[in-house]
């Protein structure tokens, strides 16, 4: 009885997915697409999503509505998309957290590597190593020495577990092979406030949050974590130049679809993403955020898949060494 039922179920599912595939190929998209952002409206990821979604809708000829499904470090939104119908009408735009939550969360409602189809990379936002403006060291080397010499008193702020600043902080500790006193905050705003007020010493955060403060001279920048210097922060050296070899980290964003979404659909979306990433409006707005759109060869399913796999492997030991989990 049971096997019969199972068999029936499988064949029905197969039939449905076959039907879906053949029907979808030619006409997709024929109705509104929902793009889930696993964070609250108004945040940096939401901003990226809205910019890209607007431009992609023009190319696809169908509206893309952005739905904010925030909570639990982005895992709720990702879980929602993982269990959605694989018809190409529910997509996910998630950042580096997609890779790190695979280790940060020991129980996830979805399988990070096996629960999704890939569309492509969107952007890679660089990070900056910054400190309160009256901290003595003048360059990154000096900062590292200072931090090592004062490892019991130096405080490193972050915006909570799984946040970009938390990841970068962990990576910094692992690169410097020293443990510091970390001071978590609820979000970037309060963490930045305390850095401005000199209540904490050091932070490593996305350019989105730090560029204007660095330009305004309210905090001190020691390095950017991108491979090359940034246009709007030309005086800040890369971590590599300043003496932290191999210290590269960026908050990369990718678009995903539920597992089982037909390849024609993800290809179509990927093409559309590539068009959107060349849209002058998107380029200009991304520049304001201190980032640049991913290159055309990055905005492909294969590139995103490779990135995700590589990043899961990269962060696993770092997170396990820190021994902090989010559940």
């Amino acid at each position: 009885m049971k096997t019969l039922k199972a068999l029936f179920g499988v064949s029905a599912a197969l039939a449905v997915s076959l039907l879906a595939t053949s029907a979808l190929g030619q006409t997709y998209p024929e109705r509104t697409i929902t793009m889930v952002v696993p964070f609250a409206a108004g945040g940096p990821t939401d901003t990226v999503t809205r910019l890209v979604a607007e431009s992609m809708s023009k190319d696809l000829g169908q509206q893309i509505v952005v739905e904010n499904v925030g909570g639990a470090g982005g895992t709720l939104g990702a879980g929602r998309v993982a269990s959605a119908d694989p018809d190409g009408y529910t997509l996910l735009l998630h950042h580096i957290g997609m890779a790190t939550s695979a280790t940060l969360y020991r129980k996830l409602a979805y399988d990070t590597l096996d629960g999704f189809e890939y569309v492509g990379l969107v952007t890679d936002v660089p990070m900056t190593i910054v400190a309160r403006k009256d901290l003595e060291p003048t360059d990154l080397k000096g900062l590292i020495d200072y931090m090592k010499a004062n490892k019991d008193t130096v405080t490193v702020a972050n915006a909570g577990i799984g946040a970009a600043s938390h990841l970068c902080g962990m990576l910094l500790m692992s690169a410097m092979e020293t443990q510091f006193v970390t001071v978590p905050y609820k979000g970037t705003g309060p963490a930045m406030t305390d850095l401005l007020g000199g209540q904490v010493d050091v932070m490593c955060d996305q350019t989105t949050n730090t560029t204007k403060q660095i330009q305004g001279g309210t905090i001190k920048a020691y390095a950017v974590t991108s491979p090359a210097r940034l246009d709007n922060l030309p005086d800040v050296p890369t971590a590599e130049e300043a003496g932290l070899a191999g210290f590269q980290v960026g908050i990369w964003h990718g678009i995903y679809a539920p597992k089982g979404t037909p390849a024609e659909v993800t290809e179509r979306l990927s093409k559309s993403l590539q068009v959107a990433l060349k849209d002058p409006n998107v380029v200009a707005r991304f520049a304001e955020l201190g980032t640049a759109p991913s290159a055309e060869e990055e905005a492909t399913p294969a590139a995103l898949k490779a990135k995700l796999e590589g990043e899961i492997a990269r962060w696993k030991p770092v997170i396990e060494a820190a021994g902090q989990y989010a559940d």
Binding site: A41, G42, G43, P44, D46, T47, R50, L51, G189, T208, T211, K212, Q213, Q215, G216, G217, T218, A284, R285, E288, L289, G290
Partner: peptide
Amino acid sequence: VGAMIIQGIVPGPN
């Protein structure tokens, strides 16, 4: 802040 950023104005001290 989100609205400002989406408008291309990143709020800061200046």
